[in-house]
Design a protein around this nucleic acid. Structure first.
Lengths: 158, 158
DNA sequence: CTCTCATTGATGCAACTGCATGTATATGCT
DNA sequence: AGCATATACATGCAGTTGCATCAATGAGAG
């Protein structure tokens, strides 16, 4: 009933097997994305900056505006495990880039806001980040590639 | 002399700034690849299997055939730091999935070979891995997408 | 209101990773 | 050969992550 003919000609049950094409694409996604991330992170570090996750978190908090974000909201945006967010927040607070305020609506919770120092860090990191994205990513692709990449990967968001 | 007009209309010096298009594509690569990896790793773990890096290493050693691979060769294939390879090998040896033999050509070095037990682990992991790739990746994309993705990401290999 | 279950966030511990460096062998220069 | 430098691999230490679990509060059922 669920049996079907797959792209690679195999017959299977409930879940199709990935075609060779699919496995090749998967393997490339794994290798290339790992390599890209590593190169960009390395450039950031070489410029004396904190890791990308700090930039991400600060950017989300800046975008969130004056109301800030709750940790669990930040977690959803960043796709990190809860304990990872908890500790990222810990480090950002310790370094003075964000402040942690008790939430008024929910006594369990807290509200995170970016500080002036956090905004400065964001600005300080941007040139190095920008250059790294250009060097390792954008320089190799034309506009059509970029659009296609966005479109295709967009299909994979859960 | 190096000044130029970028895609987004800005004028810059030595290195172009990434266009908005490029930054959007970059952000998507970061988020989606992280999410994909996490979901596939989670499925593997849920099925009681070791991490993907074990699969990768074992697969490379299987493909390498009877001559095996030197650690530095494995390192190049897997794009991991040297000390990471060293420790991955340590764990694989400890679990009996590979064996470490002294190299005859180079007394500094060693030769790694997959064991029978390692081959069994590869076979044991494949169904779960396959299903995860299909579920989280291939199911969302058609053949044209897969080819385009491979082609575009292929441009980014260093 | 009370009880139960869900949600928010933190944390101890073990495993893993990054960094710096160490040891041993190889290679190349004079 | 003798010496300097490069390559192959390992490892101590500190920082980070994953896992399990905890404490506190919220929210819904009766």
């Amino acid at each position: 009933m669920f049996a079907c003919i797959c792209q690679n000609g195999a017959v299977s049950g409930r879940v199709e097997e990935p075609s060779d094409e699919a496995f090749a694409a998967w393997a490339r996604v794994v290798r290339v994305s790992q390599s890209l991330m590593a190169r960009v992170e390395a450039d950031l570090k070489a410029a004396g900056h904190p890791p990308l996750s700090w930039y991400d978190a600060l950017l989300e908090l800046k975008r969130a505006g004056p109301d800030g974000l709750r940790p669990f909201q930040l977690q959803k945006k960043m796709l990190l495990a809860q304990y990872n967010i908890s500790r990222l927040i810990e480090r950002l607070v310790k370094n003075g880039y964000i402040q942690r305020l008790p939430s008024k609506e929910d006594k369990r919770g807290q509200v995170l806001k970016i500080t002036r120092s956090g905004r400065m860090m964001l600005r300080a990191m941007w040139p190095a980040y920008q250059t790294a994205i250009q060097t390792h990513f954008a320089a190799g692709l034309d506009s059509k590639d970029l659009q296609a990449l966005s479109r295709i990967l967009g299909k994979l968001r859960r």
